[in-house]
Design a binder for these strands. Structure first.
Lengths: 150, 150
DNA sequence: TATTTTTTGTTGCAAATGCAACTATTTTAA
DNA sequence: TTAAAATAGTTGCATTTGCAACAAAAAATA
């Protein structure tokens, strides 16, 4: 038991570590690539939803996004219909970096799935998506201050 | 492409976040559970190998382990045959916490695999282990200062 | 054997992370 | 319609994280 989640933890830490080293070249500091790709793919998304999507603390996201803005990768625009919301958009600079992040991520994907048949690739994606759905409910539950019973 | 690795990242962050919240009860701060379980399961392991096992920076491991020692969860013993090495062992206090960490991890595992048949469980473990093996080579390569070509 | 390389461990420093605690809107419910 | 709850965002503060840069021992190579 608990072997799968350890494997997943190892993979995630290794990949994040690789990406952080590789993206320094584009002046992206630790973790920033996570936010930037998603803002490029979901222009107009708000900070709160982005944090949920990535599964990171709201305040951590807030600061990462602030830094991306300060460094000119993204911009925040006030929502016209909702004064509370700030919509996030990539700048030209941000859009220009996107392909490099995508290329790196795709390469890691290729390395990760080396030796996998197409069927195995399809299978692992489906299974892993189910795990993610199973776990995100608990994450939101615990993050809101609730206690799991076990 | 790169969908699988994003899913894995989400799962890993969500789980780590849950565990960190749940282990505060046992006076374990962020990340410490990772080291403590493995020291309990591999008594005598050295810091360097532990960092490799977890896939975390050597210096991060060094500090986490130092703190575990300061807080009485583990102890470092000089290796008699190798002056460079310090072997890590759980103390009584550490051994006492172990079952609670294990129980939490097993519960998360159960949640993660909810709705999975035995066959699906076996399949995902095998596939994920292959991904981990594929990726750890690159991690060590990049960590040593080498550059991936893509 | 002597020297070079690798392994293991440490500390300084700057940056990221996340819990509390707070404000201000928006939504829900009384 | 008003009061309560939920959502979105921010900042203070303590802690963790990880790159550099270093030291010392062990292993590999000349």
């Amino acid at each position: 038991m608990s072997e799968i989640l350890r494997e997943i933890g190892m993979i995630a830490r290794a990949l994040d570590s690789i990406s952080n080293i590789e993206f320094k070249e584009y002046d992206l500091t630790k973790g920033q690539y996570l936010y930037l790709v998603r803002i490029c793919e979901n222009p107009g998304i708000i900070q709160e939803k982005l944090a949920e999507m990535i599964k990171v603390d709201r305040t951590t996201a807030a600061r990462a996004i602030k830094k991306l803005e300060m460094n000119g990768f993204i911009e925040k625009k006030d929502d016209l219909h909702n004064k509370k919301n700030k919509n996030l958009f990539p700048t030209e600079k941000g859009k220009n970096v996107y392909p490099f992040i995508k290329r790196e991520n795709d390469y890691s994907d290729k390395v990760a799935l080396e030796g996998f048949t197409q069927e195995e690739t399809d299978t692992i994606l489906k299974l892993v998506q189910r795990v993610r759905k199973n776990i995100e409910a608990d994450w939101e539950f615990v993050k809101k201050g609730n206690k799991r019973n076990y």
